[in-house]
Amino acid sequence: MTIPEHQLAAWSSQPEAGPSRDTYQSVKEVLEDRGSPFAGKTSDVFLQGSYGNDTNVARDSDVDVVSLTSAAFYHNAATLPADQYSAFVRTYGGAAAYTYQHYKTDVTTWLVKSYGSGVVPGKKAIFVPQGMNRRDCDVLPAMEYRHYSRFGTISDHSYASGICFFMPDGTQIVNYPKQHSENCTKKHQQTNKWFKHTVRCYKNIRNYMIDKRLLQEGVAPSYFIEGMLYNAPNSLFGETFQDTIVETFNYVADADRHQFKCSNGIHSLIGNSPVTWRAGDCQLYLDAMRKLWQGWS
């Protein structure tokens, strides 16, 4: 027996947006306050993750907010041909005085002042606890990242614009949340608005499997589930949720997933870097989902 249509439809639904919207507005206003120690340095504040992409489910409690500064930027220019890198160095000079750690410290200090001692900096983001009309929130201080494909002059170059941050051990994490969000929205439109409903369905199936101890927590992060489905052909979405789940699952299960891209269209989905899904974890998720589907009663 398979999971019935009514259950899949229920799992595809999106919770009411009010609390997350209010959380984002509160935090955004604090981060954009002209009295902050980084006033004038923050170039953009935006949602990322499940709430930013409208793929959130009931268990997604934290709202993820990026606080981006373009006061300085990191880059891959050193990987360009020598003449292009030389031109880059002549244009931009050496390292910037305002570093990522400066920015994270400034943002942390300001959030503590604004929300109290419950604010706690973590390895990646800064945790802001829930309050009046506000959910728990993770604020990610980030700096602009430029992935150059070519550099001639300050007016003649090409790069993909992303964000980066650093782990406590110095590991740099680079991602492209704007491209991710834009691509997911296009995918949703191209699938006659089935894509985001299907992502929520897959995520709720994961949560159900965790509750039933069929899958360990952390094996299938929402970001990777979204990326996995981004690679499924548009023609496999639609008609019914049962058809959509079967068609997309079978495609993913049979495909060479090492060829998949994340939803940002830049990173590989499967790999061993900090921004990729381990092949073994992806397989564990698929195996557990197949077992649940076939054994549903």
Results as ranks from 00 to 15, higher is better:
V246A: 11
S181P: 02
V275S: 08
D156T: 10
N207W: 03
H6R: 14
W194C: 00
L8H: 00
Y251P: 01
G295C: 11
A82D: 15
G218I: 11
V63H: 01
D44H: 09
S12L: 02
D256E: 12
T276P: 03
L214H: 03
G152Y: 11
G52W: 01
T79Y: 09
A9L: 14
A78T: 11
Y100P: 03
L269K: 01
S161A: 14
R21A: 12
R213H: 13
N272G: 07
A39L: 09
L31C: 05
T240I: 15
E239I: 14
G52M: 02
H180R: 03
T108C: 03
V27S: 01
V112C: 00
S273G: 13
L292R: 01
I210E: 06
P15E: 10
N53R: 05
H157I: 05
E144T: 13
M1H: 13
S158A: 14
D33C: 13
Y148L: 07
A77Q: 04
T55E: 00
D83F: 11
T108Y: 03
R278I: 12
P233L: 11
Q14N: 07
F151W: 04
G152V: 09
D256I: 08
P19G: 06
G152C: 05
K186C: 11
L111C: 02
Y92P: 04
K123Y: 10
N175Y: 00
G94F: 05
G238V: 08
A160Y: 08
N56D: 08
A97N: 13
L31F: 06
Q179T: 10
T23P: 01
S263G: 15
E16C: 11
S36A: 15
G280C: 08
